[in-house]
Amino acid sequence: MTLLGKLAHALVPTAMCVAIVAPALPREHFGEVPGEIARALLYISIKQTWGMYAPDPQRAHLVMDLVAHYDDGTEATLEESDDLQTAWGTTWAWHKRRVDIWRYYANFNPDKRNDNRTWYLRAVCVREARSGRVPKKITMYQVKRRFTPPGAVARGAADLGEAERRLVTVAYCRTEPTRDMIAEDALANPELQRG
């Protein structure tokens, strides 16, 4: 192989290493480059940010509690709220669905804007509309239980604190784009419409 050929071949692993290492470099020292590379890789769903249990592991468990409000003044708790009864024990692979991961992301940053939450709640509007009853709005609460520090648990305290419930947001099902999503879903999935 010629030197040029070798250089071209060596570019492959070199580029791979740059794609692996660069997104993990601190922005304060390396400027915009790590972010640019990370954004480019995201196009093919590659994320090289490895923040498992960082900066600290979670010290509270959050559960979504959704209440649908209808035109006739009635209210109903939605399937997400089942977790209020079941989410405080253990988790095994066969209990977990990938939708639970979406709910987890939708629960992040209750005090800030969270697009994952916005789209999740719009999707919930579509899901509920399939039952034939389109909710007017959906109120999202978050229930949080803090983990007791190990010293207190060793002295006999419960491992999970009292449940704290708070209002997070209200999603309206008849505003844009949710209204169009519901109409489009009725056309695309007539067999799923139960009403």
């Binding site: 249990y53 600290d56 592991p57 979670q58 010290r59 468990h61 989410a87 405080w88 024990g89 253990t90 988790t91 095994w92 987890y104 983990f147 491992d159 999970l160």
Partner: peptide
């Protein structure tokens, strides 16, 4: 804290 989190404890 990782071991006692109901989100993924066995």
């Amino acid at each position: 804290f990782a071991l006692v989190n109901p989100y993924n404890r066995h």
